[in-house]
Amino acid sequence: MGARASSGWWQTPENALWVLVASGTLTVMAGAILGPVVNQIGTSLGVSQSLAGLVITTHGLFIVLTSPVAGRLIDRYGPRRPYVLGLALYGVAGGAGLVVESFPALLVTRALLGVAVAFVYTSITVLIYSLYESERKDRVMGLRGSANSFGAALWPLVGGALGTLSWHGPFGVYLLALPLGIVAAVTVPDPARSPRESNEGDIAALRRTLRTHPLLALVYALYFATNLLLYAIVVYYPRALATVGVDSSLSISLYLAAMGAAGGVSAYYYDRIRRRVDYRQLVLAACALWTVGFAVAATAPTRTVAVAPVVLFGLGQGLVFPTVLLWVEELVPADRQGQFSSYVAIVGYVGQFLAPVAFGPVAGAFGVHAVFATAALGAGIALVSLAWRTLS
């Protein structure tokens, strides 16, 4: 699908590229940048640490709740306007934390931030679908994934640095969305939209598409599992690191940053890798990396060896993120790209939320290393199953 003739020479896919990539990192930053100051927020606003944690999770709930609405509006009006308006809301809602002094009010701003992320996340996806073609689309989606991964490594460090000044400090970074929104309004073309082929509802369209392309359910399951495993690392790997003498917050953050950096590298080269292998082979490679990585995590005897699991998982994640989004595009109707790409955000954030629920009983009963042994077993089963289907 090509871009519609735009109102000015400056509205081109090439001019839009870097604002799309840059704003893509905002969806990662939404929660990551506040991790280092959650305890300060709880102390300053007089709430328990458990309640303070809602500052990190509230926006995720509203991403899940709002994403279907975002997808529907994007399909109806096109992705450009929801994208620009989402950036504006992101900047205002996120930046409000600079001045908010009430915990309930802060949660309201976090809910609005989740609404904004839902619109930005899905709009970026559909804009990439619409503005780029073939290998160029692979390149742009890989760059988006790379920016996300590097952002996941960088933003917590920025949040920690600003948090040394005040717990309000990290909220100032959200204001970056406002100039990005202005640049987006100037540079991003308004893509041509596919006419709606039927008037059926979203649920009916979902059922029909899953009947036609049952593989789509497995692609969503892949992204769910990726985020489930990601947050297994985020939540439980610090405990595993403590067993090899890594217990300072700075040291732990560097291990997690290595995961983001590794994902950034593999996603950066995604288009080159994609020229040589198909989607199934990319997923096969990711499952192999995860199987080895989690097996090492379950047994790592030293802090040096403990670097390997986060690097291996990051490399696999950098391959899976663009693969899922591009694979979804190939399987869904062109007139419902917003609807079906919004489900990617939903399954991803649900996977993150459920990680402690899924692995908590394992950690409680058998210890933290059993979490990674279980993850290795799951990744290994997926690897064997996929290899059998690919080779048979």
Score class of each variant (00 low, 15 high):
20 L>F: 06
21 V>S: 06
244 V>L: 07
89 L>T: 12
384 V>S: 11
359 F>N: 03
207 R>W: 08
27 T>A: 05
204 A>Y: 00
317 Q>M: 14
229 L>S: 08
191 P>V: 14
86 G>M: 12
224 F>A: 02
52 A>N: 04
45 L>Y: 03
47 V>E: 13
381 I>W: 09
156 P>M: 08
41 I>M: 11
259 M>A: 08
74 I>K: 09
124 I>V: 15
80 R>V: 10
62 F>N: 02
174 Y>V: 03
105 A>T: 14
331 L>H: 01
135 E>S: 14
125 T>R: 00
158 V>K: 02
67 S>Q: 03
354 L>C: 11
305 V>E: 11
104 P>H: 07
224 F>D: 07
160 G>K: 00
234 V>C: 04
301 P>L: 08
337 Q>D: 03
19 V>G: 11
55 V>D: 04
308 A>F: 04
390 T>Y: 15
371 V>G: 03
40 Q>K: 10
54 L>W: 09
152 A>E: 07
212 T>C: 05
189 P>I: 12
302 T>G: 05
329 E>T: 06
189 P>H: 10
389 R>W: 10
15 N>T: 11
149 S>V: 01
346 I>K: 11
265 V>S: 02
142 G>Y: 10
359 F>M: 05
276 R>G: 04
355 A>N: 10
23 S>C: 13
330 E>K: 07
190 D>E: 14
275 R>T: 12
127 L>K: 02
255 Y>I: 12
247 D>E: 09
205 A>C: 11
125 T>W: 00
282 L>Y: 00
257 A>G: 10
60 G>L: 13
157 L>F: 02
195 P>A: 09
48 S>W: 02
324 V>F: 07
358 A>P: 05
59 H>Y: 15
300 A>M: 15
22 A>M: 13
273 I>C: 03
371 V>N: 05
185 A>F: 09
150 F>I: 14
325 L>V: 13
76 R>K: 12
48 S>P: 04
135 E>F: 12
72 R>A: 14
27 T>R: 04
34 L>D: 07
258 A>P: 01
258 A>H: 01
213 H>S: 06
64 V>F: 14
367 G>P: 04
5 A>I: 11
130 S>C: 01
352 Q>E: 13
60 G>V: 10
308 A>V: 15
25 T>R: 05
352 Q>P: 05
186 V>G: 00
96 A>D: 04
